[in-house]
Design a protein around this nucleic acid. Structure first.
Lengths: 256, 256
DNA sequence: ATGTCTTTGTGAACGCGTGCACAAAGATGG
DNA sequence: CCATCTTTGTGCACGCGTTCACAAAGACAT
């Protein structure tokens, strides 16, 4: 019904803004580093620098969680680690399934960053019969036919999709039907899910394209002559609105 | 200039909002699909549905690029593909280097999504001498000692970091010193870069943690959460401020 | 106790992004 | 040529997120 929304709908997150939630893992990582070095307390200024954010923003973020600091001193590192972990739901163990064990899926399965937090890879699933039974990251790959049973048996509510784009929506539908309510999508496709299901996507090529945009802008900033058509505010007349397609040989892109 | 800012500074993107730039690749992908199916024109409504966004938002996004539509008809697919490609800088070829050819790096090297757009993997670089010369994705891995020379010879301005967290900042510094001005960072660390260098990060575990937060909220929306159930790594020490003021008043932490 | 000093927590202003709703523009048919 | 219909392009209002700036709160010294 709903077109794939990578955005959360209205999600009145019980007072915690979405932007703040997205930064909590960042703070948590910085705090974990301090904790390992046995640093007892940290000021908002120091922690903000470690997390790469503004200190005022950090303090406001923490204010949504409660008053966990001590004025004149700062924040207790261990205490804050626990509070953020609890808020993020990392004090419990989250079983996840990974579907699509190709290059990327296998790399993700081997990635240690999951287990270090509260996540446990419960199963690796692939549709290719040739993959079934093969060991990846010390775990036997299971066939997609058993997807529903695997999810049910393990009480999985978070799924990771690393299949080719063509298979992603179908896999997504099956995951949702089986009870998964959060999906991390690595396939370059827009997923359609019903309300109540969260989807986050990670798209490698999109990130590169965004970088390319800024890179192009940087290349032509000192002396712009390239792509100067759309440069100024001049509405319309930017190019010729010719119906035809690629007639414009406006490239003129110099590079290197 | 030292503080790592993963955010673009003020980036007065010459009129094009950052949020719009981030969606252009999405539109481009949807349009490419239509193009392959030889669809001549598309309305904002249809294209928005394919890209998973609001149609008004899409129209406003396109309005920043210029007036490329025809009222009463829609947008010419081929023409729009070209315009967006040009705006994103994809009409030229971007050589990129990938540093850190471990599990993830190798998977990224094999990922076809890069080459399909205007990106070309110019070199794979790893610090491990045992990796040097090995073939990954049909390309010989080169040693990190030659990093500067490789970047210079190939005119590389975009780098991908897929090293362990501990090596990321050092690699980043060398890339920047060698002339790289855009970095895609997969290492779970905050990178410090000078002004003028763009950094985008992709952090797998952070995405999962954000999902876990929403998942926890969903699970405990009717009833309060059962965070006490797991209590995995919850040392008593963390349950209260260590410094002092236990008598003071421990802020009402327990919302349960 | 009192004063000073440090740092938090937050009220308020500002800017950006989003979505509505509609007028303008062009296609299409008579 | 005029009427009607479709779809774009955008003015406007609203809400979220960011940042500033400062009062409140506690630590610490005397």
């Amino acid at each position: 019904m709903a077109t794939g929304r990578t955005h959360r709908p209205a999600t009145r997150s019980r007072g915690i803004p979405e932007a703040t939630v997205a930064r909590l893992p960042l703070y948590l990582r910085a705090l974990t580093g301090l904790s390992e070095r046995s640093v007892p307390t940290v000021s908002s200024e120091e922690l903000a620098a470690a997390a790469g954010v503004n200190s005022a923003k950090l303090r406001k973020d923490f204010s949504y969680l409660g008053s966990y600091g001590t004025r004149g001193v700062g924040y207790d590192v261990e205490y804050l680690v626990y509070q953020i972990s609890r808020e993020l739901g990392l004090t419990q163990d989250w079983p996840i399934v990974m579907v699509g064990i190709g290059n990327l899926g296998a790399a993700l399965a081997n990635y240690g960053g999951f287990a270090s937090r509260g996540f446990r890879v419960a199963a690796l699933i692939d549709a290719d019969p040739a993959m079934t039974g093969k060991s990846v990251a010390g775990m036997a790959v299971q066939h997609a036919d058993d997807l529903e049973k695997i999810i049910d048996d393990n009480g999985v509510s978070i799924g990771v999709i690393a299949t080719p784009a063509g298979a992603a929506q179908q896999v997504c539908d099956r995951l949702v039907a089986a009870g998964v309510t959060s999906i991390l999508n690595f396939a370059p496709t827009v997923l359609s899910v019903p309300d109540g299901v969260d989807v986050r996507k990670v798209d490698l090529s999109i990130e590169l394209q965004i970088l390319a945009f800024h890179e192009q802008r940087k290349a032509g900033e000192g002396q712009d002559d390239t792509a100067d058509e759309a440069g100024t505010e001049t509405p319309a007349a930017a190019a010729k609105p010719a119906r035809k397609g690629p007639d414009g040989d406006v490239p003129a892109v110099m590079q290197a």
